[in-house]
């Protein structure tokens, strides 16, 4: 899987994810991509190392008296939360808890022309949704005000810039207007996150936009 990925995260996004300053919807999308992509995982761990170096270099703030004993007592009293159980799924693991299950449990809502979506619960600074695009169908032509990330989970799509297959992530910004079209052959499922509403160019989608919450 990991070797076939052509489209990766940017350094800016990886550094911000490592620093822990991104909206939750972006965190989720990045965690899902990194689960599938060892190249970006290595880059992410390198950015974590920058954090480690900065921490080592940090000015000290002296701890309260007795703090070490208090911390040790808390450590011994508590137990680390157990890791979540592993599941075999076509979905990357970070998505499972947001869906509350697997692919079959996604609550799709039609948004027109055969395209379906499911909005995932995240903090309000950005939104995340799953998109289901039937083979050969298009998502309406749209531009972006902020950043939009689209991660392919199944199938593939192409737009004016390139073709994106499973594991690939497209980072779109204000300069890109595009009409993603799912390839013939397999329905396409994507995870899309954006920190601003999309701008659709046609009239109908624009009227529908408040209802679709995209």
């Amino acid at each position: 899987m990991t070797d076939t990925i052509q489209h990766h995260l940017t350094d800016g996004l990886l550094m911000a994810y490592s620093a822990g300053t991104l909206p939750e919807a972006f965190n989720l999308t990045i965690a899902a991509h990194v689960t599938m992509c060892d190249a970006c995982r290595a880059r992410l761990y390198a950015f974590d190392s920058v954090g480690g170096a900065l921490l080592s270099d940090q000015n000290c703030a002296s701890m309260a008296p007795g703090s070490m004993q208090a911390s040790l007592a808390a450590a011994k009293a508590g137990r680390a939360a157990p890791s979540p159980p592993r599941r075999r799924s076509i979905l990357p693991a970070p998505l499972i808890s947001y869906i509350g299950g697997d692919l079959a449990d996604i609550k799709w809502r039609p948004v027109g022309m055969g395209v379906r979506q499911a909005i995932l619960p995240t903090d309000k600074r950005a939104s995340a949704r799953l998109l289901y695009i039937p083979a050969g169908s298009a998502v309406p032509d749209h531009g972006h005000r902020g950043t939009e990330m689209t991660l392919v989970l199944q199938g593939s799509f192409a737009d004016d810039t390139a073709r994106f297959a499973k594991g690939d992530i497209e980072i779109a910004d204000e300069d890109l207007n595009h009409t993603p079209v799912a390839d013939i052959g397999d329905d396409c499922i994507c995870l899309a996150a954006t920190d601003a509403p999309l701008r659709f160019r046609g009239l109908i989608p624009r009227i529908a936009q408040p209802f679709l919450r995209i």
Partner: peptide, 23 residues
């Protein structure tokens, strides 16, 4: 680096009241 990642996660919980899913 490992300690930084623990501190960062604690910081997100405490200051942002947000979530940062991990790979």
């Amino acid at each position: 680096t490992w300690i930084f990642t623990i501190a960062r996660n604690r910081r997100i919980d405490a200051l942002r009241k947000s979530r940062r899913p991990e790979p």
